[in-house]
Nucleic acid binder design. Structure first.
Lengths: 190, 190
DNA sequence: GACTGCATGTAACGCGTTACATGATTGT
DNA sequence: ACAATCATGTAACGCGTTACATGCAGTC
């Protein structure tokens, strides 16, 4: 599944410009499928070429022409097929966990800073979600939107709980290997 | 953070061949930083060129020469610096959640199949983790390894719990939009 | 006879990230 | 004055995935 397919999905809910689609991504997919203009605009161009979407330009005074995209019948078919046939992959990529895995290469303060920074990111994300409640009047109230929002929240909270209760696992050992290796550095000199 | 850096990390724990490194990735990083031969071998070649690792070839009868890599002093420095300076990103990419978000484009049975398939994947992953306990004699018993293993497990279980208790959110509404759109398909014909 | 494990790599391709480029309007 | 919002896009670059290519040894 790629950005093209997601754009098709957004356009299955209504007609939007590239700019609007980016906002849709941010408010709905950012936690599990982020994308920027550099992905979205080329994706839209490709979809237009394949006639999976159509485009109506609205001239605006002093601003670039607004291009409103609309999904076509074959675009909708294609989208549903992609949805059904998707393998349902679900994968994390975490630099934070790499840092924790190799935490014995970090000193005590550096390690604590990384952990606290991750906790702070989690809290920011949760606060952002809370801040959005009520802001969206009627939009994004489908079961799917509620399910994915709740899923994201559950993951954030589970991560926070895990880190708070298990950080001692890495903090107890930190700095061990740094010291050991440093006193052993002549291994590399010979 | 890229595969190069992770290879350096693996080599900070001992001397290994590309083949061994792949196995290390599978047993330790697969849940948050997967990589295949197509990433690992080129990464090792680049590290060798930059002299962050050295390589000793062992000729073998009837098998390709075994290339054992060893991290250099500057490689170790570089690795620790990358670890410290990493931004600690932590991101999910989930086709499954896309499918749930747009679940009203799926029929009841297709949706249930996708959810059950995800649950089965989760159970398989948990079973695999359980199966590995005891298999690794003394290896991977650092605090970092324990922390990341536990984190992965906590995420899998939180995901499973969430899906089991909230799948009704998507199942109640499924098929609604498909029906609505199909009766409305003339929107596209004109 | 087929599959798994050992052991190395290459090549093509697609994908996404980042930075760049432009420019008016509205709010602080 | 400065930042944010609206609105479009391009270009370079790096990165990883996948499939391909080779070949022996041991197990089922």
């Amino acid at each position: 599944m790629d950005v093209r397919t997601l754009c098709l999905g957004v356009l299955s809910e209504g007609d939007y410009t590239g700019y609007d689609i980016k906002k849709f991504f941010e408010s709905s997919f950012s936690s599990f499928f982020p994308a920027g203009y550099g992905s979205i605009y080329p994706a839209l161009a490709q979809l237009l070429e394949k006639q999976l979407v159509s485009c109506a330009s609205q001239t605006q005074s002093k601003l670039p022409d607004k291009k409103v995209y609309q999904i076509t019948a074959s675009g909708l078919d294609q989208f549903r097929q992609s949805l059904r046939e998707g393998k349902g992959t679900h994968r994390l990529r975490s630099e934070f966990l790499v840092q924790m895995f190799f935490s014995d290469h970090l000193d005590e303060h550096g390690l604590a800073a990384l952990i606290d920074s991750r906790l702070s990111d989690i809290n920011d994300e949760i606060a952002t979600m809370d801040g959005m409640i009520g802001h969206q009047q009627g939009a994004n109230t489908t079961g799917g939107a509620a399910f994915t929002r709740g899923f994201n929240r559950a993951m954030l909270e589970a991560g926070r709980n895990y880190i708070n209760s298990h950080r001692v696992l890495v903090e107890r050992q930190s700095d061990n290997k740094v010291t050991r290796f440093d006193s052993n550095v002549n291994r590399f000199a010979g």
